[in-house]
Amino acid sequence: MKKLIKKYWIIPVLLTITLIGFSTYMYNKPRKNIIDAGAKYKVSSKKLFADFESNENQANKRYLNQVIEVAGSVKEVSKNQQGDFIVVLDSDGGFGTVRGTLIKNQKLEIDKIKEGEAITLKGICTGMLLDIILVDCYVIGET
């Protein structure tokens, strides 16, 4: 028995180290990297807005906290108080739109995005206020 312990003591030690390592990694894991994340749904900005407008609860169940790709025509490009870019997509919803806050590290030549241009945003849907909100957004096809 003693021999066995002597021989294999390393196994539980290694297991413990792995376990601690893994939990620390999980605990400190940063937020999803949107660029690599797969989109659960691909919709047009018009469809997305219509889904929320017709039944917000249902739309929340479907889209909340999901990575989605939203295609639409650019209504406005601006910056928020922190200097992050905001891309607003038209939705046919009159007052309401789809508003995406872009991630900081996309080296985007924002001047190239023009009003009326068709683009696709990938981001995480956080729900509806006056507009449908997407966070951690990435503009697909632009570098």
Partner: peptide, 16 residues
């Protein structure tokens, strides 16, 4: 003033 609770972003994904 109104805001979406899912819109709060944390550094660590587990915390969020």
């Amino acid at each position: 003033t109104t805001m979406l609770m899912n819109g709060f972003q944390f550094k660590k994904s587990l915390m969020q």
